[in-house]
Structure formats: C-alpha cells, structure tokens
Design a binder for these strands. Structure first.
Lengths: 339, 339
DNA sequence: TCATGGTGTGCAACCGGTTGCATGTCAACG
DNA sequence: CGTTGACATGCAACCGGTTGCACACCATGA
C-alpha cells in the first residue's frame, strides 16, 4: 500500500494531545503528570503515565524550551579536539552533564577567537550554559557572553567568572625539585603556546623553583605544542648545556624523546626529560616522567559548577575559582645527572 | 540601582515582535524577510534586516523548530571519545556540519549498547539526523532509529542504511605482503574488540593474504584496544614463534612495542611490528609502520551524505555504501626477518 | 442547612516563530 | 472606466508544551 502521510517525513510522534485523549484527561493534566505529579491524584498520574508508555510518548524539547525558556542543553567549546589533553575533559563533561539530565553540544574553535565567538553566538539561543575550555577569546568578549548565559571557564582565569584551573605550577615545581635532587645543575624549560595561561604559569614555576634551588634555568621557545616542535628543539636543547628538560607538555616531551633517540642519546642515562599533563605518558617507552593532569576532574567540576548555578535559578554566587593542584608522577625518563 | 527585571535571568532577547514593531511591519513580514526574502519588496527586506541588526535580533531556534519540525542540529554518537582514533573524526564532522549550518550534539556511549540506545532516544526529538561511529547496537535497534531520523553509519555495515566504511583490509593485506617480502614466515595477528566490524575485517584480511602467500598465521586475542592489553600480549606473542605481528590498531601495537622494549628485544632488528589506523604512529620511537586511517574523511563524508539527504527532503536514495580504501605507511618498526 | 476551604482538574493564554489564505494596491488591458 | 491579475503585506491559526486562574467537588464546622 502507498504511504498516505501528508508529509514526506512520517513524523507521527505522539504529542501531549494524543496522550490526553487516550488517558481521558486534558492536556494540562498530562503536562502536570510529568512536571508536578504531586499536584495530581496518584491514580491519575498512573493513568497518564500508562497511556504515555503505551504510545511511546517522548516530550518535545523544542516545545518545552519555548514555554519554559530552559533547554536542557549545555555547550562545550574547545580550541582543538585533536589535542590529546582535551578528549578526557570532554568525556567527563558529557558524563556529568548526562547525569544531570543535559545533552551537550560540542564546538571546536580551531584556536580561532573569531570562530569561537561565532560558535557561542549561534549556540546561545539553544543552551542553558557554556563550558569554555582554554578559551582564546578576549576578556571583554567572554564577559559579554557570560552575561547572556551562565558560563564556566577551564584553564582561563578571569575574575568574576566561575573558573576551574589546573594548577600545574605545583607539579612543575616538584619536577624541578626532583631533578635538582638528582644532581642536575642546569635545566631547560621548553615552552608552549605563547598566549596560553598554562604556559605562563609553568614557565614561572620552573624559573622560581630553579632560582630558589640555585639552578641555572634556560628557556627555549617552541612555536606550538606538537611532536615535531619537540623533536626540532633537541638541537638547541643540547647546545644549551642543560642536562635535563621540563617540557610545556607531553607532546613536546615525546618529541624530545624521539629527537634524542635519533641521535643515540640515552634517556635517562645521558639526559632527563619531564613532561606535563600525563597524556599518553605511560605509553611511551621509556614511560615519561610527567605532571598529572586532572583534565577529567576539571571538566566534571566545571559542569557541577554550571548545573548548580542553573539549579539555583541563576543566583550569582560570589566569585568562584577552583584550583586543582597537581603532583609529579615519576616514571622512567628522569635520572641522575650524567658524570 | 536595583534590577527591575521581572525574572531572575535577564533574558531581554529581542523577538520577531520587537523587530516588527521597530520596522513598522507585521511579524509575518519579519519572518519572511529572513526565510523568503524574494517574496518581499527589496526595500522592505532591507528595512527589516536593519531593524533586526540594530536590536541584535537572533531567531529563536526552539520556536523555529516547533513550527517547522526542523532543528538545524545533528548528533554524533561515538563509543569512546578517548580512543585517539575518534577525535579527528569528530573534528571533521563538526567542521562539515558547521559549514552546512548545523550545530552538533556529541554523545559518548562508553561502548555500551543500552546507553547508546538511550542517548539516541533522548536526542531524537531535537536533531535532524545522526552520525553513528562504530555503533555497538543491534542491527534491529539501529534500523528502528533510522526510521525515526536519517542516520549515517561509520564503520558499521548494514544493508539499506547509508554507511561509510574505512576499508582497512587493503592496507592490512599490504602490511602482510610487506612482511612476507621481508622474509617473515610466521606471522601473528593481535586482534581487537570481539564484536567490532573492523576487527573481523582485519583478521580476515591477514588470514587470507597470509594463506595466499604461504605464511603461517596465528591469531592472538586481546580483550580490548589498549596499551596495556598490547603489552600483556607480548608473552604469548613470543611463545607463538612468530617474528612479526600485525596488531588490530596502533594502541595495541604501541603496547607491544613497550612490552618488547621492556624485555630488551630490539625493533625491528629482532621483531617486526605493524599497527593500524595511523594514530600517533609517527610519534613513537621508532615510528610505527601502520595502515593509514582516513578517519577525518570518513566523518566528513558521513555528514555530506546526511546533509544531502536532509536537503532533498528525505527522499531515500538507493542503498549507499562508501568505501574508503587505505594503504600501508612503512616507517621504522618493520624489518627483515631475524636470522 | 449553608458558608468555608482544600483539592483535583480543565480552560485558555502564552512562548516565538511559520504559513495558508484574505486583503489591498496598482498597472495593464479590453 | 471597469475588470483582471500580479504582487506585497497582514491576519490568524498552528506547532507542543506550560501555567495562572476558574471551577466543581467534597468534607468539615457552625
């Protein structure tokens, strides 16, 4: 038999109306059976739920959003999904949001502030809030968006906006102490993206701790965080006279490892390497000494902050700034200073 | 001064009504100025657009969705974001969807078919279509969802449902030929997730090609795709008497590399290792011989299929099955059979 | 017996767009 | 000069929920 549907897409989705009809009540009652059951006689609720179940009724979120102004959606925007640092955070956000009954939009800004801004603007009218990971946008732009929707930052420190910061300074300082304890006297810091909050934080921690312990510290630039950049930095690293390096992140550190291996320099026998973020670090050989990341926790915490704020009807809580501290994880790429 | 807003959240978002008022036209005209401008006098369109711009008007997608039944959203559901194979695909999907004017929901099923089903059910009422990567759901369940919304599969082969398959069989066969050419006579295949389409495909390709070339092939199980599983498989690998291994994917291969290194077995001097997917493979040391992945292309193609189908009003095209073939990338973990 | 009040349900308006149809205007034509 | 029709715009219903208010019902106390 031919399809007798009026439209192309056979969207015979049952509505609140059909449920009402089957249950023999009004549409209002059906609505209340789901949103305010305590307002109804228990047997009425049961009757409605039963009808709904039989019809396979699923409430239409668009309609709900239209009348309530709440969407049940969050958006997470990241600078680069491909950076291995990010997926665990996304995963945690998704999990936590799901548990709180939210679905999550994912946006990828490709490190471009303008793109990020555009994304937020397009997402705003269908989400209840945002999680912005390592946002690249200007402070004023972020502030403007925060006015339109509740917004939580990860690894970006703006006063007055709730934020979760992974304090790698502590872990990096431990790495420096660890290396000093192994007898190293001259240390290199291989830096990451120039405008990154995390890079500034780590560079400072290396410098300060090195100074305190009386080490010589040289800082080497790396254009960006990548394996190749790390490998290419090995020449400068060796010329610098350092016997150990702390790299901005694990990607760089792994590049350094590869570069050293190519030149036949043994790790940790002749050179020590420490990374940061604990990303795939246990999976290199030798396993990389690094600073734990806690990216998952950061994501989960951000969503908690967001949903609790949404629950409380947007009552702005006082300035929230969560610091997650980190510790060094010693594996096999650091050892005593070569003699 | 105190806030004089009626509600807690100051949502003074301009609506079609306010634009109409400012422009001095009816709401219908404002709507048409955006959706059917050719229906209006050009100067009217200009007048309306101008008013909208001044007010910062952004159409409310929930309202639009409610009246049109179209949402402007897609959903991508993956089994595990943390698997490095996935992010590039997500990234491509996001990019392509964005270009076509869609926002994308991300869902993570955590390899659990029931969770995946639930996710789809919850997302269905606010998306126009789905991209399912390596779905773990039963064929009948997938078919049911495909009835509710257009749906494209990646790396899952179900007749009648549009799908994009990364044909690693070709690349894997090349890997076997490569190893045979290097003199290896006994070969191991280290298998991946038991219910995975990709695993079956690869295992078959190794077996068939090995048989053709007169090699002995042993298949070793690995519970899942992980670094640890690979490392733990090294014992069985060595006992098997093989001199080379093709692993289900790069994660496993890298685990094998680590396990071999721990035992002081040189690669490729004493043992050859090939992976699959080209994920971080260039970043190990030595760089891994592997089969190229094309995950990005798969994602992009899936979205193209989806959007073109959405554009054509759901007119079901005939059975679509896109195969992306792959090739071997020889790097430094494969060498001549040890003597 | 009647006012009283609490309880459960329905009516109808509303959220912000879209769209079929009616209306008004104006130029072209007989 | 009246008719016709193309074109631009407005009116009002509708999408599928939510919610303030009215109402009916019933038990209670005077």
């Amino acid at each position: 038999m031919r399809s007798s549907e009026p439209r192309a897409a056979a969207r015979s989705a049952p509505t609140i109306g059909s449920v009402a009809e089957v249950a023999g009540v009004s549409r209002a009652t059906v609505s209340r059976a789901f949103t305010r059951p305590q307002m109804l006689r228990p047997e009425t609720v049961e009757k409605v739920r039963d009808a709904a179940r039989r019809l396979g009724y699923v409430p239409n979120p668009a309609a709900k959003a239209l009348s309530t102004g709440r969407f049940g959606n969050l958006a997470m925007v990241v600078p680069d999904i491909a950076n291995p640092y990010i997926p665990p955070m996304i995963s945690a956000v998704e999990e936590q949001a799901d548990a709180a009954g939210f679905a999550v939009f994912l946006g990828n800004s490709a490190e471009d502030p303008a793109r990020e801004d555009l994304l937020l603007r397009k997402l705003t009218p269908q989400v209840d809030g945002f999680v912005l990971a390592a946002s690249r946008m200007g402070e004023d732009v972020i502030r403007r968006h925060a006015q339109a929707r509740p917004l939580v930052l990860v690894n970006r420190d703006i006063e007055g906006i709730p934020r979760v910061l992974i304090d790698t300074a502590g872990g990096v300082a431990q790495a420096v102490e660890h290396l000093a304890g192994l007898g190293h006297r001259r240390l290199a810091y291989l830096s990451g993206p120039p405008h990154s909050w995390a890079n500034a934080q780590r560079r400072r921690a290396v410098k300060r701790t090195g100074d305190k312990l009386g080490l010589e510290v040289v800082t080497l630039p790396a254009r960006l965080s990548s394996h190749d950049a790390g490998r290419q930095a090995v020449g400068a690293l060796l010329e610098s006279g350092a016997t150990a390096v702390v790299a901005f992140d694990d990607l760089l550190a792994q590049g350094v490892l590869a570069g050293l291996a190519e030149r036949g320099i043994r790790v940790p026998g002749e050179f020590s390497v420490a990374g940061c973020d604990d990303v795939l670090a246990a999976q290199t050989f030798p396993p990389l000494t690094t600073v734990s990341a806690r990216a998952r926790e950061a994501g989960a915490t951000a969503v908690e902050l967001l949903t609790s704020r949404l629950g409380s009807g947007g009552g702005a809580m006082s300035d929230v700034r969560v610091m997650l501290d980190t510790t060094l994880v010693v594996r096999a790429t650091t050892g005593p200073r070569p003699v």
